[in-house]
Amino acid sequence: MKRIIKLTINGKTIEAAVSSNQTLLQFLREDMDLTGTKHGCGLGDCGACTVILDGKAVNSCLVLAVQADGSEILTIEGLAEDGKLHPLQQAFVDKGAIQCGFCTPGMILSAKALLDEKPNPSELEIRTAISGNLCRCTGYQKIVEAIGEAAEVVRMREES
């Protein structure tokens, strides 16, 4: 049995029919073709499927699509504005925070949720915010540096 859900994804209002046992991750990837959100484990262990749901970073593999009815969702595809990379994306590129890239979308969104709440995070706060996003390539150091740099860019942008 399908249910109709209405939600906002990356600023666009969407109405869609979904099965009750469809996860938000499956809905985004398969129905919406938003494949930037990755499937790494399906059990909430790796964070590759992280999206921002009503302002909070969540594992979309453990959210039912029907539970997202009426919500606002930001995926990695919705972060760049007018074709210009978000400061987090730019910092990830510039600082070498990306290797295989599979954890990158989730990592960036966890960082985005952090900066939205804490514009000036400490290193420990950064590491804690991404502690549910596993990365096997980088050892995290350049990711932590990139988030710190992006925080500064965002702060400066907001001051001016």
Binding site: G44, V58, N59, L62, S110, A113, G132
Partner: peptide, 9 residues
């Protein structure tokens, strides 16, 4: 409990 993404749910 868990990690931030888990704690948020």
């Amino acid at each position: 409990l868990g990690a931030p993404g888990i704690r948020n749910r």
